[in-house]
C-alpha cells in the first residue's frame, strides 16, 4: 500500500563505462524497459534494490497498524475485508522482497536490517491508529495516495518492479474502494461516528500530504532517479494532484481540513481550519505546507510509533525463527538449535 522512497544513489555513475552508460541512458530515454539480464550501472542496481526493499519494508510494517483492528472489525464483511487487505500487504511485501532478492540481497538479510532499524520503511506507519475511523482513513487517504504514486511507478523502467507494480495495483483498487466505503458509511452515520471520522481525518491528513516525500530539489528531473525512470513524477506534483482530488471530496463529505499540531503520541493537540482550501484558476487547491520538521523527526526514528512497530516486527522475526529453521533444514535429524 505504500509509496517507494526517494531512491538514494549510492555510487557515482561517472565511474561506469561511458559507452555502456550512454547506451543504457539512450534506451531509457527511448522508453525501453530494463530486464535483469541487461547491463545496468551499479548505481542503478543498488538504487533499485534499495527502492524495492524500502517499498517491501513499508508493506510489511504497514500491515501492523491495520492488523491491530482485525479482531475488532464491526461486521463479518468488514472483518473479512480487513483480513484480506492486510494479507495483501504481506503478499506485496513478499513480491517486492523478491525483486530486491534478484538484485543481490537475501530476504533474511532484508528482514534483519528492518528489525534493527538499519533500513527504513514509509514514515506514515509511525502514526497511531486509535479508532476504527483511522482504519477507514488509512484505506482511503493513504491507499489513495499510494495508488497515485504506484500508478506512476508502473510506468517505470525496471521490468521486474513494473510487473510487480501492475499486480499490486490490481489489488489496491479493492483497498481504496473498501476504505472509501467505510468513510462514506461513517460520514452518513451517527453524530458520534462523524465526530470520530473528523478526528481520524485530522490525524491522517498531515501524514497523507507528507506521504509523497519532502519538497523536490531544483533540477531533480535531470538527476538519475528520474532520468533513469526509477521515479516518474516529482513529489510536489503528486502531492498537488492528491490535494486536488481529496480536499474537495473531504469537503463534500462534510469533513473539514485542519492544520494540526500533535503531541509525542501523535494525537492532535491544537487545530485550525486550513483557509487555503479553494481552487486557484488552474484548478489547484491550495494547502498549508506540512510541518517538515515533524517529517524528519519521524524519519529519524522519533515518531509516535516507531519503537512499537519495530518491536512487533522483531518479535515476529524472533518468534518465528524456529519454524523457518525447522522447515529450511530439510534435515529432519537436526538436533534442536541452542
Amino acid at each position: 500500500m505504500s509509496g517507494a522512497a526517494n531512491p538514494v544513489m549510492p555510487i557515482d555513475p561517472c565511474q561506469e563505462d561511458p559507452e555502456k552508460l550512454a547506451e543504457f541512458e539512450a534506451n531509457i530515454a527511448n522508453g525501453v524497459l530494463i530486464e535483469p539480464g541487461d547491463w545496468m550501472p551499479e548505481a542503478y542496481r543498488v538504487g533499485m534494490l534499495r527502492m524495492s526493499e524500502h517499498h517491501a519494508n513499508s508493506e510489511i510494517v504497514g500491515a501492523l497498524p491495520e492488523g491491530e483492528w482485525i479482531t475488532r472489525a464491526p461486521s463479518l464483511r468488514r472483518k473479512l475485508a480487513l483480513t484480506a487487505k492486510v494479507q495483501d500487504e504481506v503478499g506485496h511485501g513478499q513480491m517486492l522482497y523478491r525483486v530486491s532478492q534478484d538484485l543481490g540481497k537475501s530476504r533474511e538479510d532484508m528482514l534483519r536490517d528492518l528489525c534493527t532499524g538499519k533500513t527504513k520503511y514509509h514514515n506514515c506507519f509511525n502514526y497511531p491508529a486509535p479508532t476504527w475511523a483511522d482504519i477507514a482513513m488509512i484505506q482511503w487517504l493513504i491507499d489513495g495516495a499510494a495508488i497515485m504514486n504506484q500508478k506512476t511507478l508502473a510506468d517505470g523502467a525496471y521490468g521486474p518492479y513494473v510487473r510487480t507494480m501492475h499486480r499490486i495495483n490490481m489489488e489496491e483498487a479493492f483497498h481504496f474502494k473498501s476504505g472509501e466505503d467505510m468513510v462514506l458509511t461513517l460520514m452518513s452515520g451517527t453524530k458520534k461516528q462523524k465526530q470520530m471520522t473528523q478526528e481520524a481525518f485530522d490525524r491522517w491528513w498531515g501524514p497523507s500530504i507528507m506521504f509523497f516525500g519532502p519538497p523536490d530539489k531544483p533540477g531533480c528531473e535531470d538527476m538519475p532517479p528520474m532520468r533513469w525512470r526509477m521515479k516518474i513524477e516529482t513529489n510536489d506534483s503528486l502531492r498537488q494532484r492528491f490535494v486536488n482530488r481529496f480536499a474537495p471530496a473531504a469537503r463534500d463529505l462534510g469533513l473539514v481540513v485542519h492544520v494540526c499540531e500533535k503531541n509525542e503520541e501523535g494525537f492532535v493537540t491544537q487545530k485550525q481550519v486550513d483557509e487555503l482550501c479553494t481552487p486557484d484558476e488552474d484548478g489547484n487547491w491550495g494547502f498549508t505546507t506540512p510541518n517538515w520538521d515533524e517529517f524528519f523527526k519521524v524519519i529519524r526514528g522519533n515518531g509516535p510509533c516507531n519503537a512499537h512497530r519495530l518491536a512487533l516486527r522483531r518479535f515476529s522475526y524472533e518468534q518465528g525463527a524456529w519454524v523457518r529453521r525447522a522447515i529450511a533444514s530439510g534435515d529432519t535429524t537436526l538436533p534442536p538449535a541452542a
Binding site: 483480513t83 504481506v90 523457518r324
Partner: peptide, 21 residues
C-alpha cells in the same frame, strides 16, 4: 486473523490468512 502480518514466514502468513478468511 490476529496473526495476519506476524506469522513466521511471509508465504505461510499469506496462506494462513486465506484459511482464516
Amino acid at each position: 486473523g490476529d496473526w495476519t502480518g506476524i506469522g513466521p514466514i511471509l508465504e505461510e502468513d499469506i496462506a494462513s490468512s486465506s484459511m482464516s478468511q
